[in-house]
Design a protein around this nucleic acid. Sequence first.
RNA 1: GCCUCGGUAGCUCAGUCGGUAGAGCAGUGGACUGAAAAUCCACGUGUCGGCAGUUCAAUUCUGCCCUGAGGCA
Length: 312
Amino acid sequence: MNRLIVIVGPTASGKSALALELARHFGCEIISGDSMCVYQGMDIGTAKPSQAERQEIPHHLIDIRKPGESFSVVDFQQLATSAIESINERGKIPLLVGGTGLYVQALLEGYQFNPTPNTDPRSELDINIPESVVTSVLHDKLNSVDPVAAARIHPNDRKRIQRALEVVTAEHRSISCDKISPDPTLLFDCIVFGLSMERQDLYRRIDARVDRMLEAGLVAEVKSLMLQGVPADSTAFQAIGYKEIAACLEGEVSLEEAVARVKQSSRRYAKRQLTWFRRMSYIRWIGQVEGPGAITTFQMAASQVAEKFAIK
RNA sequence: GCCUCGGUAGCUCAGUCGGUAGAGCAGUGGACUGAAAAUCCACGUGUCGGCAGUUCAAUUCUGCCCUGAGGCA
């Protein structure tokens, strides 16, 4: 089985810094498990590792898409899997660092995705249906063709309803759902760390980091994406820090308001990430301990890695 | 010093013609199988500024006090 070290945690919890230290120490190559770091030209707002850091330690799955392009879990699964294999072949240990729960879990637990259907469920509906009831009509429709999925998906969750309908209409089978195994089998010989800290401290770090992003030129970065003609509805502009600043540049809100929204979105995102990671029972949670002589997160992680893989 | 308007949930406020109160935002918890930094769900007890009076009953009416904003001197 291929070896793998994994670091997860909420945004601004210090994943990248820990990853770099571990990579230096154990000679790892880093694989990004982050849905937004794949996009070129989005450096500041996604807090990508610097050029110098990427020069020093090889990083994978960063800057592999143009901002207007699409990217998905399945792309990630394939690319990350092959990166893990090739790094192991070279005798090094890959280090996956990421905050995108779906990506990490799908990779580690080997989610089986259905083939991509190409239908738009909405196109099969009567065009005269008012927008306000489309979601419930779609849910009713799903209920008639796949009651199990319909029962599991909330009637308001349009995105998931559409996805389930796509799968069922294209394949005549229910969207896969063999999940929630309390103790899933992992596809790698891996050790998974989760970074934790007091919520207050985390929120303070988030706010401070957003301020630093502004100083580093986030507004100019967003402006440049807009000038490149990246569509407002593209995945790139779903990113926190980008959609809010874009709204400011469009004159919809003040910069002050936009910055406040970026901070708030980041805090909520961090909370959702924590909810996701909490259910991954195989995560070993580590956090900074205060006080003199306290061991650092790096020391904690490094000793566990050394033990796990019998290396130094 | 006098006058006016305020003081109710972390914040902004609503409300109770007297029967101990509720919205938005914030926050918290949860879900998650091809956009996931997305999408969706659930959760509201707080000396109703303080003390006293009237009353069966006061956050609501009355008086005094504290406090904020504005106005007049």
